[in-house]
Simulated assay, not measured.
Amino acid sequence: MDLLLHLDRTLDELDPPRWPEPAADATRLVRTVHALRRVPLRELGAADLRTLVSQQVALPYVVPLAVRLLVDDPLLDAYFYPGDLLLTTVNVPATVWDLLPQLAKELRTVASALPESAYADLPRDAAREIARFVSWCRLG
């Protein structure tokens, strides 16, 4: 998939069916995710991508955007803490990485190059989760 061809389109267009409006009593997260599906891909920011990836929404379209940001800044603070987008992205299901093997290799390269000091400000299990992703990529 050539992502550049799709940057002016929304997830509702690319990942049918279009989602209906959220229920009136929907949570803030649900309302946010529904709204993000209507935003052109080029306008999605790091926090938007973190939200979509963590909620596993249209991953074949949002993971490439996340990896593109992570290659430039692996410890990007998308919303909660430095490295939150990385940690969310390495936890994407293996079936998605099977569709995007080159991106998995790129992210593995970035993740495996992190110095041990980079883990100091990440959540407790971050090193283990990143190491699991790196090991899985080596096997794949």
Rank of each mutant, 00 (worst) to 15 (best):
M1A: 07
M1P: 01
D2I: 09
D2G: 00
L5Y: 00
H6D: 08
L7T: 09
D8G: 11
D8I: 00
D8N: 11
T10E: 00
L11F: 08
D12M: 09
L14N: 02
D15K: 08
P17T: 10
R18K: 06
R18P: 10
W19I: 03
W19D: 08
P20E: 06
E21M: 03
A23P: 02
D25H: 07
A26D: 02
T27M: 07
L29N: 06
L29T: 12
A35N: 02
L36K: 05
V39I: 08
V39C: 04
R42V: 10
E43D: 12
L44S: 09
L44P: 04
G45L: 07
G45T: 01
A47Y: 04
D48Q: 05
L49W: 00
R50L: 12
T51W: 05
L52E: 01
V53E: 10
S54M: 07
Q56W: 06
V57S: 10
V57N: 11
V57F: 10
A58R: 06
L59Y: 05
P60L: 04
V62G: 09
V62W: 06
V67T: 12
V67P: 05
R68Y: 10
R68S: 12
R68Q: 14
L69F: 11
L69K: 10
D72P: 03
D72M: 08
D73H: 12
P74N: 14
L75E: 06
L75I: 08
D77R: 15
D77K: 14
D77S: 14
D77H: 14
A78C: 11
Y79M: 13
F80A: 07
L85Y: 01
L86F: 05
L87W: 08
L87E: 15
N91R: 11
N91F: 01
V92E: 01
P93L: 10
P93F: 03
P93Q: 14
P93A: 14
A94P: 03
A94R: 10
T95I: 13
W97L: 13
D98Q: 15
D98E: 15
P101R: 02
L103A: 13
A104V: 10
K105E: 15
K105H: 15
K105A: 15
E106R: 15
T109K: 04
T109W: 00
V110A: 08
E116D: 14
S117Y: 03
A118F: 02
A120L: 09
P123W: 11
R124S: 13
R124W: 14
D125V: 00
D125E: 13
D125M: 06
A126G: 04
A127P: 00
A127C: 00
R128E: 12
E129D: 11
A131N: 02
R132K: 12
F133I: 01
V134R: 01
W136D: 12
G140W: 13
G140Y: 13
G140S: 14
